[in-house]
Amino acid sequence: MERPQEGAVALAERFERDRRHLHGVAHRMLGSADEAQDAVQETWLRAGRAGADGVENVTGWLTTILGRVCLDMLRARRRRPEDLTGLLAEPAAATPGGTGPEEEAVLAESVGLALLVVLDRLGPAERVAFVLHDMFAVPFEQIAAIVERSPVAAKKLASRARARVHGATPLPAADLAGRRKVVEAFLAASRAGDLEALVAVLDPDVVRRTDLPGAVPVLRGARRVAEETRGNAAHARFARPILVNGALGAAVAPGGRLRVVLLLTIIGGRVVAIDVVTAPAALDRLELSLAD
């Protein structure tokens, strides 16, 4: 018979082997590298208290514990609205023991900024069910135990989440592909701060409207809009194409957390209008889904 101390050592070794997997699962469920670290640490504490005696699939068991931890954190987040003060401020510096802005950006990019934005629109149980099943192939019987639903109900949660993540657009595939090229050209020029490339992708009479406090509400003309856009190059690196109410636009999401949505009107291969949405209430009303 294995002595308790030996069992604890074996569990610790196994946990370290699974740590990267657990962090990846938690990052997709929570959208934050720091929160993912907290979830993994809490998983270790709960696993240590419970012990793995008699557990055949330790990785699956740890994933189940992690899923419950993440679900609790997502529910707590819903009860504690995020403070969006300074939404266009530069990313904060690293905190001791935490994840710095550059590392957070790399982690978010590895998942996909647009995907993290869309996942953040899901309810806690939907997000857990979708991430575990569609991204990590966790069986619905196991997910059901985490979300405290039947396997059939867990499958419905994932199905609803899938429909919201992938969305739909009335645009034919060829039109969507063409407009995506325009959006990507606009974002690439914005990131590079390339004034002439911005002017080339904008209609001469382009109109930019914004709800951002302190900004000029309406700006007209390709060069004026391009000059303003070039000044936002630091934020443009966090922008990705996304479907907004079924039309192609862009989301600005440092670390995968939505801050700004750009509604882009494209006619004849050029951007003729840009609506910049920053107000939290207005962002919440938008239907966002992946553009792929």
Rank of each mutant, 00 (worst) to 15 (best):
A105H: 13
R49K: 13
R14K: 15
E42H: 00
V183N: 02
L248H: 04
G100Q: 11
V260T: 15
G60D: 01
V147I: 03
V206A: 12
L84N: 05
G167Y: 02
T95Y: 08
V147M: 02
A154Y: 00
L219M: 08
I274K: 05
I267G: 13
R78C: 09
R162G: 12
R270E: 06
A52C: 09
G86D: 01
L30E: 00
D194G: 10
L45Q: 02
G214K: 08
G193M: 05
L286Y: 03
N245A: 10
R240Y: 03
A177F: 10
A52K: 05
A93D: 06
L288M: 07
P217Y: 09
P254Y: 11
D203V: 11
G98K: 08
D72G: 10
R68F: 00
A161D: 01
G246Y: 03
R209K: 08
G31S: 08
E16N: 14
A215V: 06
A76N: 06
M73S: 02
G246H: 02
A174F: 12
M29N: 01
F140W: 03
G167Q: 04
V25H: 00
E109Q: 15
D292E: 12
V199L: 05
G255C: 06
E2M: 14
L157I: 07
N245W: 09
H235Q: 15
D203P: 13
L88E: 06
D292L: 11
P172D: 01
D284P: 06
V225P: 04
R223V: 08
F130E: 00
S190R: 08
E109V: 15
D53V: 14
D18I: 06
D284I: 15
L258D: 05
L66C: 08
E287Q: 13
V272F: 05
A282Q: 12
K181N: 14
L30R: 00
L264E: 01
H166T: 13
I274E: 00
A168E: 07
R179D: 02
P91F: 13
A247V: 15
V244Y: 04
V272C: 12
E148H: 09
A291Q: 11
V147D: 00
V55R: 05
V117A: 03
A52L: 05
I146S: 04
E103A: 15
V276R: 07
G31N: 04
R220H: 10
R223S: 09
H235D: 12
R220G: 04
I143V: 11
G100W: 06
A163I: 15
P172K: 10
R149A: 12
N232H: 14
G67L: 00
F130N: 02
P241S: 06
F136T: 10
E184A: 10
E126Y: 03
L116W: 01
D194F: 10
R80I: 10
P241G: 09
A273H: 13
